[in-house]
């Protein structure tokens, strides 16, 4: 099941084929390297555009969210077996 986190995070990445690819993120003073982006989805919350990235770091699956209006990143959920 996914466990809710809803905490602000720092994200670094690269632009690849004109789209942003997150490569690592910092959460609770830990730097986590992203090995795979398994899915990304755009959606709107009112008129605020948001993009969700589902990523893998180590064995864990994280749901990250980027608010495209105020350019902030959140860790929304983590998969726990």
């Amino acid at each position: 099941m996914y466990q809710k986190i809803d905490q602000k995070i720092w994200v670094a990445g690269v632009y690849k084929n004109s789209s942003f690819q997150p490569t690592k993120f910092k959460w609770q003073d830990r730097e986590l390297k992203i090995t795979e982006v398994t899915l990304h989805s755009d959606f709107k919350d009112g008129q605020v555009k948001k993009r969700c990235y589902s990523v893998i770091s180590g064995q864990e699956v994280y749901r990250l969210e980027f608010n495209r209006e105020n350019e902030t990143w959140y860790l929304r959920e983590i998969w726990v077996d």
Partner: peptide, 9 residues
């Protein structure tokens, strides 16, 4: 399938 694509577990 979309949820499985998102999460290899």
């Amino acid at each position: 399938t979309i949820l499985q694509q998102e999460n290899p577990h």
